[in-house]
């Protein structure tokens, strides 16, 4: 078996780990984390391009290292090689090892921000996109410079009000962290925003099963050549359509 993995770089360390331990070769292509911020259609188009670049007849399957990610995988079409994607809403579920564990934690802990090594070290350069378009993450000084004192202050209040909706920041620890740098950075971010800080053990077994080729129907969706992945907005996350 030979597999191709197209993955978001937010899972860089985790994917490198599971691929290093895979029983067969996995060729990996990471795409920028910034795709998360460009909107679902441009994101799906960029991933489709990567799928379409994959040479015919080389791989047993193309793995997608993504969750549905706000519909960023909706409509992806398998050309000559089947596509395999985990039935996850987003990468937090992938880091926690199951959709059920994420759902349970999500429901029991509304108002949680999640961080992982990838969320801390990847794609900061492309955050500029959401920065300008939505205006979040801009300092009061930046906003008043751009929009004047009165409007700048108003925008700052309007755009930071979301912080009050959140109560905690959770660092997902996979054991791949080389030192305490990531944990410290996440804790500092929580302190700055006035949120409680906690850590949660990650679980890479789901990703491991993906690269090992153990694709249970309950955990993975498979689109055969000519089929596409369609978001189903239920517990299955995806359905497959011609």
């Amino acid at each position: 078996m030979r597999l191709k993995l197209i993955s978001c770089e937010v899972l860089f360390r985790e994917m490198c780990d599971v691929c290093a331990h895979a029983p067969h070769p996995v060729d990996v292509e990471f795409l920028p984390k910034g795709l998360h911020d460009v909107g679902s259609r441009p994101m799906a188009a960029r991933i489709q391009e990567a799928v379409d670049r994959t040479p015919r007849g080389v791989y047993d399957a193309i793995l997608l290292g993504y969750g549905l990610c706000g519909n960023g995988l909706d409509g992806l079409t398998a050309r000559h090689t089947r596509l395999v994607a985990p039935r996850a809403h987003d990468c937090i579920a992938l880091l926690l090892g199951s959709r059920q564990r994420y759902q349970a934690f999500f429901e029991a802990n509304p108002g949680t921000y999640y961080r992982s090594t990838g969320w801390l070290e990847r794609g900061k350069d492309v955050q500029q996109l959401s920065h300008d378009a939505i205006g979040v993450d801009q300092s009061l000084a930046e906003l008043t410079r751009k929009y004047g004192e009165d409007n700048g202050r108003y925008l700052y209040d309007a755009l930071t009000r979301y912080c009050a909706n959140y109560s905690q920041l959770v660092f997902i620890e996979t054991g791949l962290e080389p030192d305490a740098k990531f944990l410290d950075e996440a804790a500092a971010e929580a302190a700055e925003k006035g949120w409680r800080f906690d850590r949660l053990p990650g679980d890479l077994e789901w990703l491991r099963r993906m690269v090992e080729g153990v694709w249970a129907e309950s955990e993975f969706v498979i689109a055969m050549p000519g089929q596409r992945l369609v978001a189903s907005y239920d517990t299955a996350v995806y359905e497959v359509k011609p």
Partner: peptide
């Protein structure tokens, strides 16, 4: 226009 302009 982006979100900040809309808000203003």
């Amino acid at each position: 226009y982006f979100v900040p302009e809309m808000l203003l």
